[in-house]
Amino acid sequence: MKSVNTIVIFLITFGYEVIYNDAPVLWQTGFQDPATPVMEGIINLHHDFIFFFILIFVFVLWILLRAIYFFNSRVNKVAINYSHGTLIELIWTIIPIMILMTIAVPSFALLYSIDEIINPAVTVKAVGHQWYWSYEYSDYIGENGEIINFDSYIIPEEDLEIGQFRLLEVDNRIIVPVNTHVRVIVTSADVIHSWAVPSLGVKCDGIPGRLNQISLFIKREGVYYGQCSELCGVNHGFIPIVVEAVPLDNYIDWIQKKLYA
């Protein structure tokens, strides 16, 4: 077992094989691996911010600990009776403002780049229901007016096969092509839901009577897992989302099969 691990680590290290993590793992505290430029941007932004946060955390902790150590009744028998200092208060107000304004710049840049819609080639509609998602691929109509329209339900625990994720697998995945601009229109048929997939860096509320648009540009093939992210009733935790990204040819095959099967 140990030798297998060593080989895997060796292969990963030298780029022969990369295993991406597109679903949550036990006790996970970090991100899942990004599959879209948006998620890469989010992770980079997070790491940039953490740099500032660590600096601030260490600095504030150092000041607090020094204050506790040097200024107490044992060390200072005579209390110092001043309660404010204008200069220090100005400094500790203006410097945080400048830090916040500095980190706001990349934050807004990322935010607006996420909202940007590049002319999409595919539109997928995700409609939230109590409690399942249904998907519509209305770009394609068969010769007799067939449309692609299906529901996506969770696979119950007792039906899971070896290797499948508990509470994350669905019976009908949505299939999208890789390296293609995809528009997802999220809405709901009853209460507010939220369509979210961490690896793709998307989380979009589905609101009845309203259509929200997000864009996907998936850079690699894979199966991406997500969950409803807006409390929508008792089975809120049991309507997962599975996105399967495939090459364009396979996508077209799948569409053909769906339309004419």
Binding site: D115, I117, I118, N119, P120, A121, V122, T123, D139, Y140, P177, T180, R183, I185, C204, G209, R210, L211, N212, Q213, I214, L248, I252, I255, Q256, L259
Partner: peptide, 23 residues
Amino acid sequence: MESLSTAPRDERFPHTNQTRNCW
């Protein structure tokens, strides 16, 4: 089946909310 195409981006509806676009 036609080549991949869908409703294009519309400059009148640049926001996340596309309700009016559909309408």
